[in-house]
């Protein structure tokens, strides 16, 4: 039992007929993920790649196919509406891949979601992978845009704000023979659905996860909050990396959330918080897995 999803999870895709959505829907199907429905308003009744039925609304798709999780690939101006539609349909989990959603839209979505049973991951995130048992981790649940073959089934939980940096960590783990329980990309926007801390708590409770890699970057204080909780509560070894030590203050480093402003959100402050919490800090992004392996040995776990 990994966190959030399993290879049995039934997934629908909002925006399955777009270029981006269709390509990654196909890659997920190839990976063995149960993509059971697509949603594109006005295209209900069509069939995606001769296997996936398309519906006009999320509610219809969920009712007809039993999908409980949605992945959103719609363009930024329509993404907030798509998230709210998925919440209204009562899905368990919504993973929003879309990059470039206005922050004000996310502020309203987050406020509107309060009290609902739906969890949002993202936006502007690579999604989730729960590796399968087949060759190149085939047969797992891949929701989003991560390459499938880099994953390997195992017991390390990975949580990160950045997409490609997540792949880097996962690939390092896999090439060193360490598999992953679940990899979660929470996204690089300043307002997102699920925080580092939310995912760390789930990993801490998950019997299949034995160690954790947490990847953060400059901007905000989410990494510090997670570190404070880990210090008091986390039972498992954690290694971490923070990107952006060389970033100049006041400049947005690609991600809307990656900016050092008002002296807050510096890499130095986050690294200090990690160290204080007993998290092993990778000095460079190329030793994330090695740092975790050394940390596990030191702890004798």
């Amino acid at each position: 039992m990994a966190i959030l999803v399993t290879p049995e999870t039934r997934v629908l895709i909002q925006g399955i007929t777009g270029g981006f959505g269709s390509r990654h829907a196909q890659l997920s199907l190839d990976y063995g993920t149960k993509i059971v429905a697509g949603v594109t308003p006005g295209k209900g009744g069509q069939i995606f790649e001769r296997v996936v039925p398309i519906f006009d609304t999320v509610a219809q798709a969920a009712k007809e196919t039993g999908a409980t999780v949605s992945a959103i690939f719609v363009p930024p101006p329509f993404a907030a509406d798509s998230i709210l539609e998925a919440v209204d349909a009562g899905l368990d989990l919504v993973i929003c891949i879309t990059e470039g959603i206005p922050v004000a839209d996310m502020v309203r979505v987050k406020a509107a979601m309060r009290g609902s049973k739906t969890r949002l991951i993202g936006p502007n995130c690579p999604g989730i992978v729960c590796p399968g048992e087949g060759k190149d981790s085939h047969g797992g649940c891949r929701i989003g845009i991560a390459p499938g073959y880099i994953n390997h089934k195992g017991h390390v939980g990975v949580v990160s704000r950045s997409g490609t940096l997540t792949y880097e960590a996962v690939w390092q783990l896999t090439t060193r023979g360490l598999g992953q329980s679940t990899t979660v990309g929470i996204g690089g926007d300043p307002v997102n659905g699920t925080s580092h801390l939310d995912v760390i708590k789930m990993f801490n409770d998950d019997p299949e996860t034995e160690a954790i890699i947490m990847i953060g970057e400059i901007g905000g204080t989410a990494e510090e909050e997670a570190a404070a909780w880990i210090k008091e509560n986390c039972k498992k070894p954690v290694a971490g990396f923070i990107a952006g030590a060389t970033a100049p203050a006041g400049r947005r480093m690609g991600h809307a959330g990656a900016i050092v402003s008002g002296g807050k959100g510096t890499a130095a402050a986050k690294i200090a918080a990690f160290r204080d919490a007993g998290i092993a800090v990778a000095e460079t992004p190329s030793v994330m897995a090695d740092t975790l392996i050394r940390h596990i040995k030191e702890l004798g776990k």
Binding site: S160, R161, S162, G163, T164, L165, T166, E168, G188, I215, E217, I218, F241, A243, G244, A245, T246, A247, M253, G254, H255, A258, A267, T284, P285, S286
Partner: peptide
């Protein structure tokens, strides 16, 4: 990727 781009700057340094 923005995160990897930042990390690449960091590792050059």
């Amino acid at each position: 990727g923005a995160g990897l781009a930042m990390a690449t700057m960091d590792i050059i340094k």
